[in-house]
Nucleic acid binder design. Sequence first.
DNA 1: TTGTACGCGTTATCAC
DNA 2: GTGATAACGCGTACAA
Lengths: 398, 398
Amino acid sequence: MASQRNAHTPASINDVAALARVSIATVSRVLSGKRTKEDDIARRVRDAAAELDYSVNRSASALRGADTKTLGLIVPSASRPFCGQLINALEEAADDRGYQLFVGVGSNHALQNARFESLLDRNVDGMIIVPAEGANVGSMAAHHPHRLPVVQIGGRHHAVGTSLVSIDPVLGMEELIVHLSAQGVRSVATLMDKQMSFEAAEQLSMLHTQLRSYSIETETRWHTICEPTMSAGFYTVVEMFTEPSDDTADGITSSAGIAPGVVNAAEGFTAGHTAFDNMSTKNGASGLPILANRVVINDHPDAIICYNERTACGAITALTAMGLHVPNDVCVVTSGFSHHKSITGLEAPFGRIVAESLRLIGNGPDYSAHISLPPTLSVQMTSLRRAGDRTWRNEQVG
Amino acid sequence: MASQRNAHTPASINDVAALARVSIATVSRVLSGKRTKEDDIARRVRDAAAELDYSVNRSASALRGADTKTLGLIVPSASRPFCGQLINALEEAADDRGYQLFVGVGSNHALQNARFESLLDRNVDGMIIVPAEGANVGSMAAHHPHRLPVVQIGGRHHAVGTSLVSIDPVLGMEELIVHLSAQGVRSVATLMDKQMSFEAAEQLSMLHTQLRSYSIETETRWHTICEPTMSAGFYTVVEMFTEPSDDTADGITSSAGIAPGVVNAAEGFTAGHTAFDNMSTKNGASGLPILANRVVINDHPDAIICYNERTACGAITALTAMGLHVPNDVCVVTSGFSHHKSITGLEAPFGRIVAESLRLIGNGPDYSAHISLPPTLSVQMTSLRRAGDRTWRNEQVG
DNA sequence: TTGTACGCGTTATCAC
DNA sequence: GTGATAACGCGTACAA
């Protein structure tokens, strides 16, 4: 006898079995795909399920079966562009494979560890973690006896037994150089992070190797370190591109301009605010006296590689103010991520990241690996020289 | 007899009951808090649970009990700042209450509806939906016989039986006017959306009422519509603040400056890119000819209300280029959200949004309501006049 | 190939 | 307040 059926209680496997005049075991086998034969029985079962609007109770399935078809994702903050895009990509890929995504947010190791335990209690089939600053994924996973596939996305402290999917900054630098070279760039300057990380040092090392192999010139004084603010990028570039002049009438101010299209990075916008503050109060309302008695030198680089979008914005603003055209006179790119798709830079290959992560999780907890992926080059107007434009400018000048 | 215990299989309620020498029913009652008395039995149970590292199997609990302690959140895109911040706030509040958060992403009605059904299958206790453009939450919820608390965040099409938590744009406008008035602003201009929505029309109506009650002047020609780009904001403000001049030597260009700290909005950065493109190619490398033969008029507004961060950036850039100080000469605010905390504007009250949403869900499916919350004012440098600064500038000018 | 029966871990019900 | 037991819905070993 089937259970009491009415509109307010969803159908169970018993109801489907009764309607299809088969046993619940057959229903289970047909619906789970373990019975491949396509005969009258299979059809009756499917029809009955459709008519009753039946869907398996995942709680019961999880209780009896081996997996829950759920995945846990732990991020430091969902409002970080990287994490938001990762959620988008991962949710879609998980849905395709019949998985549902639990999201946990933790801005430090302790919080992420707490989320890790909560998700462990929910019997997730796998865990994907973007470690917070200072968080140690290894210690989260090792502290628990459960054997669960764990994939770490990015970050440094990698532990045995957990997988790591990361983006190779060196490959990214290589892509940038190749692109700049293809644009006809002959000389390159860099704005680097004041607190240089291990990866940044690797990048810089790679840079010089690449520059040599593409016969791109560079000078020691063109390699600068600068704070991660727009104004720091601005001043650094002005310093690099100009020298003092006695003839004030011929100064840059006569051709000073604005680049209203320059954009700022989304992360850490406090710095952007600070930049505005500094510029407007220190110099009053009448622009930038720093440019008044300076002239652009002839011997300046063709391209500038900035370590993030903010400093690149400052650089573009400075170049435009000095009367130099971006990208025809100077290309500006960032060796970091181009979140806003406004400045040429790198993009995380989210499709591949989630595909590899899900593959590793599917392979089980004993199959761990370290996968390093190349970032994607995102070409924008700040480095895309078109033949026509270049000619046009040359005509203007000549 | 308790189950076979070893390090690889987690403890069950039977193991705890055996160790504490009580029945499994008592264990369940103590650990679920349905038994408040704090005696030896309660202590024994808790100690046993701790020793065995026991935690309830949520799948079994969900199967037998009434709820799953899970919540579903459906957003159009996790990389939208609003959604990212909502996830952050909701995840924390849910965790506090012992809930785990499922996240679904769907950029249109069909996808959101598919996620809705998936989460329904997972037996979530409540659903929170940020509707995508054109998505109808009512039709998702109504199409299914399940009676589940559904809360819609923002958006237009509200359905009976589901709750709606939204942010009142009119209250936001009021807060802005009060703030500007307190800063000594006497006259106001607006940059409004070209495709004016119903909310925007309400806001504009409210604006005029408020301006009157605070004796703030305005002129018809100061109320403009403009595209959502930085360059549109730039040109609109230039047009509003200047007039043609015959005396080229006294033009604005002699005091043209740069505001490298201006920032752009995170949403739809394609527009920002387009702006850059236009500015740099149309005008060549030598700045903005548009300013060359124009002078700032005396009769200009004290403050500009822009409808988003992008146009506000353009406005700030234009003002700075014209030699006007922000905020001492002109305040710039946005009547939209200030995602980057760089321009004075509004902020969604995420704490209250999630608190109200969870309260509505806790009250069950029959308790639906429409809750309208005031946005929070986010005061930044672009409108914060300090007495000292103003005096300082007056001295400079005098 | 099909059906029966049991067990998964928990909570609700009922008798004490 | 406590303990025994039934039930939740499903998957699967085993018997037919």
